[in-house]
Amino acid sequence: MTTARRDAVRRVLIGSDGFRSAQDIYADMRADGAKIGLTTVYRALQALSDSGEIDVLRTDDGEAVYRACRTDEHHHHLVCRTCGRTVEVEGPAVERWAESIGAEHGFTDVTHTVEVFGTCPTCAE
């Protein structure tokens, strides 16, 4: 895949608030006149995810949604179930627990993903 197409997908995510589905990204790009296929959007998202440039989250119904990372550091997300507002959070206790549980079972090179869901203050009003 060309870097130009991957950069175009990255730009859409940088200009977006919150997480977006591949279909939403594709629709926006097509509406703006981009000559890109949905498969290419998926490939770009996978490449961006693999390189750590974007965050990927699974919704309650199992759909993958994406957004541009705000930090290069390992982090987790606190996500509003209602509006999708997302806050990047650190979880030192989670980091220690993941390493500990891996070591307890003889695992090395342990990684993890933690997403926390709730209702943001605005939606709770």
Rank of each mutant, 00 (worst) to 15 (best):
H112L: 13
D61T: 10
H74P: 12
D28P: 00
D28E: 10
Q23E: 09
R10M: 11
H76N: 12
D61W: 02
R30H: 05
A27D: 12
T59M: 07
H77G: 10
F107V: 08
R70N: 13
A124M: 14
S16F: 02
V65K: 04
G18S: 12
T82R: 13
I36R: 02
A8N: 05
H74T: 14
F19T: 00
G15L: 08
L45W: 01
G62T: 05
R67A: 10
R70H: 12
I54E: 00
R11L: 10
C120T: 03
E125W: 08
E125K: 15
V79F: 02
T86W: 02
R81G: 06
G18T: 06
C83L: 10
Y66N: 04
T71A: 14
R43Q: 07
A4K: 15
R5A: 06
I54Y: 00
D28M: 05
E125Y: 11
D55K: 00
R43D: 07
G102W: 05
A98T: 09
R30N: 03
Y42E: 05
C123K: 14
A34F: 03
A34V: 04
A31F: 02
R67C: 12
D109R: 15
D28Y: 03
T113M: 09
F107Q: 08
E99S: 04
E88A: 11
D7M: 06
R85M: 15
G91I: 03
L13C: 06
C80Q: 05
G84E: 09
R85H: 15
R70Y: 10
D72Q: 10
E95L: 07
V89L: 12
M29L: 14
V89T: 13
D55Y: 01
D24W: 03
T40F: 00
G15I: 03
G84N: 09
R11Q: 14
E53Y: 02
E53L: 11
A124D: 15
G37R: 06
A22Q: 03
K35T: 07
P92W: 08
F117S: 15
H74K: 14
V56M: 10
A4S: 12
E104Y: 13
G91T: 08
A4P: 01
C80P: 02
T2Y: 07
A124S: 15
S100T: 10
T40Y: 01
R20H: 06
V114I: 15
R11C: 05
G62H: 04
T2E: 12
E88H: 10
T113R: 13
V12E: 09
E104C: 07
S100V: 05
V94D: 06
G33Q: 05
S51R: 15
A93T: 09
D55R: 02
T2K: 13
E53G: 06
C69L: 11
H76G: 09
C69W: 01
E73C: 06
R6Y: 01
A27S: 11
D72F: 01
T119A: 11
D60A: 12
C123A: 13
R20I: 01
H77S: 14
R67D: 06
V89C: 12
R70S: 15
L38D: 04
R10H: 09
A47D: 14
Q46N: 08
T108K: 15
H77L: 07
D32I: 01
A98L: 08
R20E: 07
I54V: 13
P121Y: 06
